[in-house]
Amino acid sequence: MSTTLAVLAATGLLLVGCQGDEPTDDQGAEEEADSPRPGYGAPREAEEEADGADDGDSAATPVHLTITDHEFDVPDTVAPGAEITVTNHDGEAHTVTSDESGIFDVAVGAGETVTFAAPEEPGDYSLHCTPHPSMTATLVVE
């Protein structure tokens, strides 16, 4: 029986109560509302936050663009204004430069990581590496 108690205690399924110390309905509801563990009486909003849900604000979702062997690996889509993390796995510097001047232009040294903000306006943004013009890709903002 002690093995069963140990398993229940380890998984959080063991409930211990003392006679006369049971919460009233008001106390129980208050404790549930303050529960920090999603699924154990936590408010629905806390569960969504814990699951990574962000009510449609996908700008908070991490976005990664990588450069490896003189090629861009760009996500399928990004949210308007999303912070994009660029990691250069090559042994030389590159840029992530929009074909349309002034939209975005970031330099990323060999082995470095930098960030920049995606355009706020949805659309397809062609990009290239300035020192290596054959390196091209498209950033889709939607």
Rank of each mutant, 00 (worst) to 15 (best):
M1N: 13
S2M: 14
T4Q: 12
A6V: 11
L8R: 12
L8P: 03
A10G: 11
A10D: 13
A10S: 14
G12R: 01
L13F: 13
L13P: 02
G20V: 04
E22A: 15
E22W: 15
D26A: 04
G28F: 07
G28S: 10
A29Y: 01
E32D: 15
S35F: 05
R37I: 09
P38Q: 05
G39A: 01
G41S: 09
P43G: 05
E45S: 05
E45N: 07
E45G: 06
A46Q: 08
E48D: 08
E48N: 06
E48K: 03
E49S: 04
E49F: 02
D51I: 00
A53D: 12
A53H: 07
D55H: 13
G56P: 03
D57N: 15
D57L: 14
S58V: 13
A59H: 15
A60Y: 03
T61G: 08
P62N: 10
V63F: 13
T66C: 10
T66G: 08
D73T: 11
D73V: 12
A79I: 10
P80M: 09
A82F: 13
A82S: 14
E83T: 15
V86D: 02
V86H: 04
T87S: 10
G91W: 03
E92H: 12
H94C: 01
T95Y: 07
V96D: 10
V96A: 10
D99I: 12
E100F: 11
E100I: 14
S101T: 09
G102T: 04
I103N: 09
F104W: 11
D105P: 06
A107Y: 10
V108D: 03
V108I: 06
G111Q: 04
T113P: 00
V114P: 04
V114E: 03
V114S: 00
V114W: 04
T115D: 09
T115G: 05
T115E: 13
A117G: 12
E120G: 13
E120Y: 12
P122Y: 02
G123T: 14
D124C: 09
S126A: 15
S126G: 15
L127E: 05
C129A: 03
C129H: 00
P131T: 07
P133M: 00
M135W: 03
M135N: 02
A137P: 06
V141T: 06
E142P: 02
